[in-house]
Design a protein around this nucleic acid. Structure first.
Lengths: 243, 243
DNA sequence: AAGTATATGGGGTGTTTACCCTATTGACAT
DNA sequence: ATGTCAATAGGGTAAACACCCCATATACTT
């Protein structure tokens, strides 16, 4: 966690006329979460240039994102989905609407229907694909920060498809899991054995095995392969990031 | 120091004081190749703010990149690796030596030794991981455009490793597998046990197990979870279609 | 106060995996 | 003809997994 929250109240002369008085900064605050440093810094630069948000923090990874969000309570959360550690969707689950005022814009390279569905459920207000124009990102941040929702066209299409499907009851399964079980699901899908899970979470091997059995029963899967596919499908793990 | 470019980004009547004379633009020309539109536009914005390069073009995909490079003959090529269609390395292969003056900086999310090796062979002069700081990108562009080479630390490490290894298995790991092994990879990733694979392929359990062990050793994975992630990553199985 | 959900533990059992070893056959190449 | 590789098949072992049973403590709900 860098000290990226320096207040630049100094503000350049903007419109050259009014002398900058020590007036309250009325801009919305924003927390930027993106794992790739270069991309994160570019987002930061670009948003600075927009001069519409006060960037109160950046995070490179899910756990830090949760902590920063709880501490800084930003007006807007700009969130990547695929990250090492906690995924974007897990971040939202942890925050579980504990900051009702906070508006969430997801900025993602992928848009799988099931992930979208989960994101909506966890309180996402806007979605911008990394493949869409930068102006769309700006517009989304704009609208969402003002209380509207914003989804791009292909996304709406995806949403319609996702919501049209008569809840193939595989989609809702993830909600059957407790937070602990989701946590363990992620670890298993990242190749951790029951023993490793136990030691990482400081619980006994038997508890780890019990959680494992319970979550697999809830999800209706009977082996690791099925569990990994489920986890990928729901954005809990990113197969392109090998742990 | 790191925020020295903030004033440049947005609207600019250029330096406000000196009237812009029709003087030759001596800046190096650069062609930006990156598939994700938002990222591409952010790179463009940031490079504009550096005011060090004249951005002569952008491309979202390999084929267009080749054509633009041949037509515009830029001084510098900033190239993404992972793209739909032609990959970055394929772009360099097509261009091979036809623009000897052109300097190449690769900007990539991954740095697999095998890919690195190919890129060096095809005439890359600098490499910046998307995980490294934005200042590194700037520095790399700086150095490389001036005729030097530039690689970040972890990259040099990777390069040493890549070049240390005797040739042969250069291409993506999936090509290490025999057809039979790929077939079995798919079955395992679809939750079939060794026994099921054996009966489905009409081979003995032991042969099935042997294939399994061999392909896992070739791929460098040590459990089913890793294998499934690999299979998903390479499109061998679709996690959204549960078998 | 009683019920439910969650997280934490344990015992036991049969199956499967991961990895070590050897060996035979056919195909294709130098 | 002599290799190397792919595919086949087997022996053995320790660990991990999948699944069944059970108990306790805490917290939240009704």
């Amino acid at each position: 966690m860098k000290t990226s929250l320096k207040d630049n109240l100094k503000k350049k002369p903007r419109d050259s006329a009014p002398p900058p008085l020590p007036v309250a900064d009325l801009r919305k605050t924003i927390l930027i979460v993106e794992d790739q440093a270069a991309i994160r810094e570019m987002i930061t630069e670009v948003l600075k240039s927009y001069n519409q948000f006060k960037i109160v923090g950046t995070a490179a990874e899910g756990q830090a994102a949760v902590e920063l969000a709880l501490r800084l309570r930003p007006d807007v959360l700009l969130l990547d989905v695929l990250m090492p550690g906690l995924s974007g969707i897990e971040v939202l689950r942890r925050l579980n609407k504990s900051i009702p005022r906070m508006r969430v814009v997801v900025f993602s390279a992928k848009q799988e229907p099931q992930i979208i569905r989960g994101l909506i459920q966890e309180g996402m207000h806007g979605f911008v694909n990394k493949n869409s124009s930068l102006s769309e990102l700006r517009q989304a941040l704009d609208k969402v920060s003002q209380g509207e929702n914003w989804y791009n066209d292909t996304f709406s299409q995806t949403v319609r498809e996702a919501l049209a499907k008569p809840n193939s009851h595989a989609d809702s399964m993830i909600e059957l899991l407790t937070p602990r079980e989701r946590e363990i699901t992620v670890l298993i899908a990242r190749s951790h054995s029951s023993k490793e899970v136990a030691s990482q979470l400081s619980i006994s091997l038997k508890t780890s095995e019990n959680h494992r059995a319970n979550l697999m029963r809830k999800l209706g899967v009977h082996d690791v392969a099925g569990l990994v596919r489920f986890a990928v499908r729901h954005g809990l793990v990113d197969p392109s990031i090998d742990p």
